[in-house]
């Protein structure tokens, strides 16, 4: 997990710097939680997480405004003395002189946004969750077929890139070829994208490197996509039995999340793109509640 620097947060949310700090790159955020320090300003510090970004909105500001200057300073001092990474004011609230002096005393930056607190906090938490998510890079191809993010895995030379090319040709989108950077953005969601340096490139043996975006246009590529389904391609093994009905539920573990998957045996002459496409439609249909194999068993045993 790579921490997020305060300067990238300032840039992402276009924050105004009220109290400057030498180098915002040096302040690193490691947690995706954000605190509105209402209870802390009231004097309660049990269970306080000092590594979190603190956000002051309407309520906290109104509470502080009621207090006398000395009291206000003591309460703000208590909060800053815990070593918080920064304090953010929402709704263009003006920083009180006591806040500025405490920020200088502990050299903690104070930032400001015009957004409302709830909108800003949810945006910030979402951004931090993505940036701080556990990540890994996988050898495979990520495509979007009928709105489903399909990750194709398999040994080198099994035909992943060729399949991706034909899928693009059939009107779907390429996200990454060869290397897929995966982030676990929540307990149920995996997000995949390509490393920037090779984004939207594809390598086809015998031809070389192709730029899919230049060749097929912007409608053939996508920046990132959730990974909904995994297709494992493997060379046809005579001794192995492959799924015939589609009643068994297989899954593949990626960063601790079990993603529904299937294994497709590869043999020369098999049109893999159409198989991937139909697997995507079938997966959609299953998630919408219809299973053809189950319907067949019902028909066999209930009529």
């Amino acid at each position: 997990m790579a921490p997020v620097s305060l300067s990238s947060i300032v840039k992402e949310f276009d924050l105004e710097v009220v109290v400057e700090f030498d180098n915002l790159d040096d302040i690193l955020i490691n947690v995706a939680d954000v605190t509105r320090p209402g209870l802390q300003l009231a004097g309660y510090f049990d269970h306080f997480g000092p590594d979190r970004i603190q956000v002051l909105g309407n309520m906290e500001t109104a509470f502080l405004e009621r207090l006398e200057s000395r009291d206000k300073e003591l309460r703000i001092d208590a909060l800053f003395s815990k070593g918080i990474p920064c304090l953010i004011l929402t709704r263009h609230h003006v920083a009180f002189p006591e806040l500025i002096s405490c920020a200088r005393k502990y050299s903690i930056p104070v930032l400001r946004t015009g957004e409302t607190t709830a909108t800003f906090v949810s945006g910030l938490v979402k951004y931090l969750n993505v940036e701080l998510a556990p990540r890994s890079s996988l050898h495979g191809v990520l495509v979007e077929v009928y709105g489903e993010g399909i990750l194709i895995l398999g040994e080198s030379g099994v035909g992943k890139s060729e399949t991706a090319l034909e899928i693009v040709k059939r009107g779907h989108r390429l996200i990454a070829d060869d290397v897929v950077e995966v982030r676990r953005v929540s307990d149920t969601t995996l997000l995949g994208r390509a490393p920037e340096i090779i984004r939207h490139l594809i390598e086809i043996r015998g031809i070389g490197i192709l730029d899919v975006k230049e060749l097929y246009g912007v409608s053939s590529v996508k920046m990132q996509e959730n990974i909904n389904f995994v297709i494992n391609l493997e060379l046809w093994d005579e001794k192995k039995t492959y799924e015939r009905l589609g009643l068994n539920e297989e899954s593949t573990d990626i960063l601790g999340i079990e993603v529904p998957s299937i294994t497709i045996p590869v043999r020369p002459g098999r049109n893999l793109a159409i198989i991937v496409e139909v697997a995507a439609i079938n997966f959609r249909q299953k998630s919408m509640g219809y299973n053809a194999a189950k319907a067949l068993t019902d028909r066999l045993f209930w009529t």
Binding site: S137, H139, G157, D177, D178, V179, I198, E203, I209
Partner: peptide, 28 residues
């Protein structure tokens, strides 16, 4: 690619399949 084994190159936390051109290039 002349070997049957899987071969991986890693630079820091990033890992790439040594038989994949784009993969190795993405390591920079």
């Amino acid at each position: 690619s002349t070997f049957r084994s899987s071969i991986w190159l890693a630079k820091g936390e990033r890992r790439a399949n040594a038989k994949s051109l784009l993969g190795v290039m993405s390591l920079g």
